[in-house]
């Protein structure tokens, strides 16, 4: 079995002059929930499209389970819900699932009842898809992605249109899906939600991969302290040359120093050696959202650049 469930190498998609995905080299480990993050237009859906054989890459390669991503045999081991779920409007929810189960030769008909119950659509299973609300469509999309118990599941914005209770249910479902060896790729702009369920994340911005790793690792890279000293100006000058200090900036009447929290003692020692003494040193815990905004320079929901 290959080391990574998904592996891309210099994957690129260009539409005319616009580069939607730029030399993306991504590695997704086996098992767990992998967050695929990025503002709108960052190339998440295009990347998913290339992995699922819907979009032809301009160059580069993509592999799933070590095999070419777009190969039908590979895709039969993958479940996907990309963007808004799409089904035949004149068929019922159950008939739609039966159809997709049939064409993909995924599992048995008894799975359909189980999946409909799982996504809480049992009572509306015989209603035509055209009569479903957005939330119900989303639930059916999730059920469809789980047909045949796939080893890899792509879920693109699975909580769109769901009420708060539904969001919690789907979050729990995604967490459960990620257990037991299955890999779930969760694409979402709701970073608080992602932070709660994902083990690993990749962040895309303008088609490029700008960060990848476990959430803890990524947030740790951007650990910071809020510092009050006897001489903030001198403290900035003292800390600036240290290689492990990423940045110092004045904020809220003190200094915010971006540096690993494990080296806090070195900060106090360095300052003391230059005659600057620390009055207050408070670790700053950043959320994934703050981290995201910092490295992409954009708001995760709107995709607009921060002013």
């Amino acid at each position: 079995m290959p080391e990574y469930v998904i592996e891309t190498k210099d994957l690129t998609k260009q539409y005319g002059d616009v580069i939607a995905v730029d030399r993306l080299s991504l590695r997704v480990p086996h098992g767990g929930v992998f967050g695929f993050l990025g503002p709108n237009g960052s190339g998440k859906t295009t990347t998913m499209g290339m992995l699922l054989g819907l979009v032809h890459p301009t160059s580069g390669e993509a592999r799933i389970f070590g095999d070419p991503a777009r190969h039908p045999a590979t895709l039969r081991r993958v479940g996907a819900m990309v963007e808004t779920p799409t089904f035949y409007p004149y068929l019922s929810g159950r008939a739609n699932l039966r159809y997709f189960q049939g064409v993909g030769r995924r599992g048995s008909s008894s799975d359909i009842d189980r999946l409909l119950e799982l996504v809480d659509l049992g009572k509306r299973a015989e209603s035509k898809y055209a009569t479903y609300s957005l939330g119900m469509k989303q639930r059916l999309g999730i059920a469809c992605a789980l047909l045949g118990d796939p080893e890899l599941v792509f879920l693109d914005e699975p909580t769109n249109g769901l009420d708060p209770a539904g969001v919690v249910e789907v979050r729990e479902l995604v967490r459960q899906l990620g257990k037991g060896g299955r890999t779930v790729i969760l694409s979402s702009h709701l970073l608080a939600e992602t932070e709660l369920v994902c083990d690993n994340v990749a962040v895309l911005s303008r088609g490029r991969l700008i960060a990848q790793g476990t959430i803890q690792e990524l947030l740790r890279q951007h650990d910071a302290f809020h510092l009050r000293t006897t001489d903030d100006a001198k403290a900035r000058v003292t800390l600036a040359p240290l290689s492990w200090v990423e940045r110092t900036e004045e904020r809220d009447g003190g200094l915010v120093v971006t540096a690993p929290q494990a080296r806090s003692w070195e900060i106090t020692r360095a300052l003391a050696e230059t005659g600057v003494y620390v009055n207050e040193l408070v670790p700053v815990h950043r959320s994934l959202e703050e981290f995201f905004m910092e490295i992409t320079g954009t708001d995760p929901t709107t995709g607009r650049e921060r002013s």
Binding site: G53, P72, T74, L75, V78, V82, E83, T86, V103, G104
Partner: peptide, 9 residues
């Protein structure tokens, strides 16, 4: 899109 992601070819 939904059909092709089932691996129909």
């Amino acid at each position: 899109r939904s059909v092709l992601t089932q691996g129909t070819g």
